[in-house]
Amino acid sequence: MFRYALRRLLLTVPVLLGLSLIVFLIMSLIPGDPAQAILGSYATPENLERLRADLGLDLPLPQQYLVWLGNILQGDLGRSYALNRPVLDEVLERFGATLLLAGSSLVICILIGVAAGIVSAVRQYGWSDRVITLLVLIGISVPAFWLGMLMIMAFSVGLRWFPASGMTAAYGGGGLLDILNHLVLPAIALAVVAAGVIARLTRSNMLEVLRQDYIRTARAKGLGEGRVVMRHAFKVALVNLIPVIGVQAGFVIGGAVYIETVFQWPGIGRMLVNAISTRDLMLVQGGVLVVAASYVLFNLLADLLQHWLDPRIQA
């Protein structure tokens, strides 16, 4: 296990490098003078000169990449001229809020999705299966940003249960209760689509597993159906579902961009949208890099978890 973890960790390095290369290449697509584009209205001659030197813009592209990578490895993601502060500071500050939102959303969608999928599989073709299938269909078709707005209209404006926005920062402002209060609606809105996908795949996975010979063995041993489903079948289904959950985590992080905009959540998604409209490219680049890298690490964790649960996967 330890050796496998180490090997997997080492294998992540090229992925992270590739990731940085893609971000770098996308940034090099900037039409016109990159320094001009990055600085925008802050493009004083001195600033331009400094930035060109920092980014090595006079160098050929491969060397530029190395300079750029070197800066990043030293924790220098550049400077946001619009906010007048280092990109890394801003990104890290926002990242906590997104992590809180996406994390709770992921927990919600896993719990609901898996539970619904199991019920659906166990009651295949029964009325609960039909209802869940219908809900899943609605869930995976509904635009998250629209759902968020509907939820605000219903639960914030109509019923006044939860605030529509006003989350200041993940750590600032009120206590835990206040944070939770702000968290409920956006976390649920963000969870819906992924919950639908997870429910669907849990159902088909459980149906597949329940047909296996070792399930018949479990029944031949005289085990109760609850134990057969929840222990024998679900353990295998769970192992199969972990990569699915990894993929869904990517969609949840992506969806956070919309949900943060709808609920005025002070996370990295809203930061990116704002940065794009102010053409604060260094900030966009830094945000994308940090989120993508943490997503890669999340998938690494998912992979290790799967390996730990399934002894058949060879190191």
Binding site: G18, G250, I253, G254, V257, L272, V288, A292, Y295
Partner: peptide, 10 residues
């Protein structure tokens, strides 16, 4: 390896 929408945003 990128979260889907993030790449589109970039």
């Amino acid at each position: 390896a990128f979260p889907y929408i993030l790449l589109a945003l970039a």
